[in-house]
């Protein structure tokens, strides 16, 4: 029985890392720009499609495709923000929400036309490690390590680089940052680009372990949303903690109460946190 619980724990951690990876870019954009990017799920799936296309077309391994795909998404995000979203970024959150919602519909249906909604997957299976009764699927484990590495990289960028300090400064006080000579629109574009880049990296990893189809963009967005509320907005550790908590809750919930109840528990946890600690586990007051 203990082996079964070890398996449930492991499953929860791996699922959680994936959730964290999905959410971290979304959380960054929401926290810094106060933009709820409805396109986030579609960005992840777009990257997934690109990775699948690179694999079926040219035999490129998803791990090798990860960096170019993530960079492509970075460019897409940067220019979308610079050209379009920046025009309304200081408007109330509903305006930016509507804009990204509209952009998402365009991207979503373009993907339906280009790639078709048929689920596809990179048909590589890396096998699994078995420790007695407990099984560790290698591709999920590798995806988890890479997801953690990418999240760590983002953390380092935010903490250590000039750009990262500028992003944090803009998040803290937009007007003061502008007075200090930070070009706020550029920082916004870079932030949105970084958010899209994380979505891109996540999509490349997802292509290995998850069927890629436009059908799931809404679900990905929903998970990112819950993770942000649980973990707190705009912080990398927050997204990581939120993702892991959600993964574990769903895994143990699914085990004890059946799969039907698992997603419900995630939402219940979100409600409890909103009532008790609206900033989330790692959020700071004032940035909720």
């Amino acid at each position: 029985m203990s082996a079964l619980y070890a398996q449930v724990l492991l499953n929860g951690l791996m699922l959680g890392a994936l959730y964290a990876c999905i959410a971290v870019g979304f959380s960054l954009v929401w926290g810094v720009l106060n933009v709820i990017s409805m396109m986030h799920g579609s960005f992840v799936i777009l990257a997934g499609y690109l990775t699948c296309a690179a694999f079926t077309g040219a035999g490129i391994h998803p791990f090798a495709a990860l960096v170019p795909v993530a960079l492509l998404l970075l460019l897409l995000g940067y220019f979308l923000q610079l050209g379009l979203i920046n025009r309304v970024v200081s408007q109330p959150v509903l305006t930016t929400l509507t804009l990204t919602f509209g952009l998402d519909m365009i991207l979503y249906n373009l993907m339906n036309v280009w790639f078709e909604a048929t689920p596809r997957r990179v048909t590589l299976d890396l096998g699994r490690l078995e420790f007695g009764e407990v099984v560790l699927p290698l591709d999920r484990a590798a995806a988890m390590v890479l997801a953690l590495a990418m999240t760590g990289l983002l953390y380092v960028i935010l903490r250590g680089s000039r750009l990262g300090r500028a992003i944090v400064a803009v998040r803290m006080d937009r007007d003061a940052a502008a007075l200090m000579g930070i070009r706020v629109p550029r920082v916004y574009a870079a932030t949105f680009g970084l958010g899209a880049m994380m979505a891109g990296a996540c999509g490349a990893l997802l292509a290995l372990v998850y069927p890629i189809t436009t059908n799931v963009t809404g679900q990905l967005l929903g998970k990112a949303f819950i993770v942000c509320v649980i973990g707190g907005l705009g912080t990398v550790p927050g997204a990581l903690a939120g993702g892991l908590v959600l993964g574990l809750v769903e895994s143990f919930g699914g085990h004890w109460f059946g799969p039907q109840v698992a997603p419900l528990l995630g939402f219940a946890l979100m409600l409890v946190l909103l009532a008790v600690k609206p900033t989330g586990l790692f959020g700071q007051r004032g940035y909720e």
């Binding site: 079964l4 398996q7 449930v8 499953n11 791996m14 699922l15 998850y210 799931v216 679900q219 990905l220 929903g222 998970k223 769903e250 895994s251 143990f252 919930g253 699914g254 085990h255 059946g258 799969p259 039907q260 698992a262 997603p263």
Partner: peptide
Amino acid sequence: NELYPVGSMDFSAPLAKIKS
């Protein structure tokens, strides 16, 4: 004999149970 909800993104919980 279980149902999974429409938005499911992971089957590891039911599958681990089925395996046992």
